[in-house]
Design a binder for these strands. Sequence first.
DNA 1: CCCCGATTGTCAGCTTGCTGTCAGGTTGCC
DNA 2: GGCAACCTGACAGCAAGCTGACAATCGGGG
Lengths: 219, 219
Amino acid sequence: MRALAVEDDPRIAADLQAALTAAGFRVERTGDGEEAWFLGDTEDYDIVVLDLGLPSLDGLAVLKRWRANGRTMPVLVLTARGTWQERVEGIEAGADDYLPKPFRMEELIARARALVRRAGGHAAALQEVGDLSLDTNRMGVAIRGVPVQVTALEYRLLAYLMQNRDRPVPPTELLEHLYGDDDAREANALEAVIARLRRKLGSGVIGTRRGFGYFLESA
Amino acid sequence: MRALAVEDDPRIAADLQAALTAAGFRVERTGDGEEAWFLGDTEDYDIVVLDLGLPSLDGLAVLKRWRANGRTMPVLVLTARGTWQERVEGIEAGADDYLPKPFRMEELIARARALVRRAGGHAAALQEVGDLSLDTNRMGVAIRGVPVQVTALEYRLLAYLMQNRDRPVPPTELLEHLYGDDDAREANALEAVIARLRRKLGSGVIGTRRGFGYFLESA
DNA sequence: CCCCGATTGTCAGCTTGCTGTCAGGTTGCC
DNA sequence: GGCAACCTGACAGCAAGCTGACAATCGGGG
């Protein structure tokens, strides 16, 4: 289990390293944004703990550049204060979880473990249902093996449906997952995304059960 | 699947019980800390939903005493507000997951299921009475194993009858459950739904006891 | 700092199928 | 027999969901 800790405050960084090590991770650590970006882009980590307030290159920017390059390791973001905007920005940048400062090391460890478990320990990078396959490492989508280009939002929608492939997911839940309940969107926004996806993927991939929700067709 | 719901607000408690039951759990419920502790210590539950603000014995104290006694069932904690102190305290006391109030029932159910699954008790949310079976996960209905398509309203009706399989449910109660007493419907609306369901499911599934209500036939 | 293209939310109008109502029938109970 | 509870088929209204167009916004590059 390799972990990367990106944190510029030396005291917190030391604590972080100690706690992660105690939890059984092999820890590398940096306080510099550029270096963090380089490490995350070239090395394979099971979990990254990323502080947003960094010198030289902002944490959010680092995260975005990783995601843009197709890096999908779980990232736990530390925000200075749990402001609403930071949360949204972080989600959009591709963070997997949050922790507002100040926090308890125990909670951080618990969440980090949960993320690693959820990521399946780098195991099944390819998930399939019906004609659709998701490559969770490259954030890639393919229909019957033919790659299809999708946007970040569309990908997150597909990933969520994939994660809940055994049930129809109600629109309310999808809206909440995609945007967070803080900033409301019209229900129609979701329908628009679905429509665009269906045009790209063809019919017979995303199904609707009127009154229940959306699901990935398995046959 | 047995669940224990510990919640002192009667309204929330009722919702909780309804949602968990609908999700296929056998639910026991208490609003008292001492009783909660006793139940959790002596009975085997697949999941416990624990509100922190309790009279007589604080939720956190209950949780700690369970853990001290070696009880390891998954516990989902409801916190009044998602303050980080409360979350940290909860983690230290041995909670497995959190939900800040207010929350969506769907999310609670999803998390409860995740916890149960993680704990190894594969949640086969299948409820049966007579020839009828409800898969509360897929929101699917089957007669003698043969899938039948039902609408959302029809499904909710069946689920409610399933919850109350041991008694006939009076039409007034069904109307209130399906629509809420705000917007009134003619009693006949219900009869129409019943009729449509009977056509789909065949006879011998939904029974009527004149003057008492509807019920699922058990033999 | 501005420009340009890609992404994404909103709007309007449409399709589809669910569902409440109505009218009339049936059943059980006094 | 009469009344009230309940059943059922038909049908129209309506709401959930779909789609194309457009505008706002975002993000990257100069």
